[in-house]
Nucleic acid binder design. Structure first.
Length: 111
DNA sequence: CGGGTGACTTTAC
DNA sequence: CGTAAAGCCACCC
């Protein structure tokens, strides 16, 4: 495996590294990749792999912790349901980032 | 190269 | 809270 293929591949690698019970944001991933303004591409990249269980797209939320991508799931409720199953606490419809925010930097330890 | 796109973000009304 | 618009950038054709 290469450490850097494309922007997309990097997104997948990072998302796959998100530990259970943790979530991250599009902006954080994009920023980590060096293109903080390409946060949209992060979500778009996930949409291309939404079918791959290898990539827990449900652990990626917007900067407020809202499940902005749930609408793209076959069953939107599943996104929140999965997070709840991973002991992720919610504040209304948003994840409690103050307790479950994960940074790509933490992946460096494993990569 | 250029145009279209988007699961973002920010500002504004 | 809602919608709108702009900025922004990588990918695809």
């Amino acid at each position: 495996m290469k450490k850097s293929d494309d922007f997309y591949s990097r997104v997948y690698e990072i998302v796959k590294c998100i530990p259970s019970g943790k979530v991250t944001t599009y902006g954080l991933i994009a920023e980590f990749l060096g293109a903080k303004s390409s946060s949209r591409m992060v979500g778009w990249a996930l949409n291309a792999v939404i079918d791959r269980i290898d990539i827990p797209c449900h652990r990626v939320v917007n900067r407020l912790g809202e499940l902005s991508g749930k609408m793209h799931f076959d069953h939107p409720q599943q996104m929140k349901d999965r997070l709840l199953a991973e002991h992720v606490e919610f504040i209304g419809e948003a994840v409690d980032l103050s307790k479950h925010l994960w940074k790509p930097d933490d992946a460096l330890t494993d990569l």
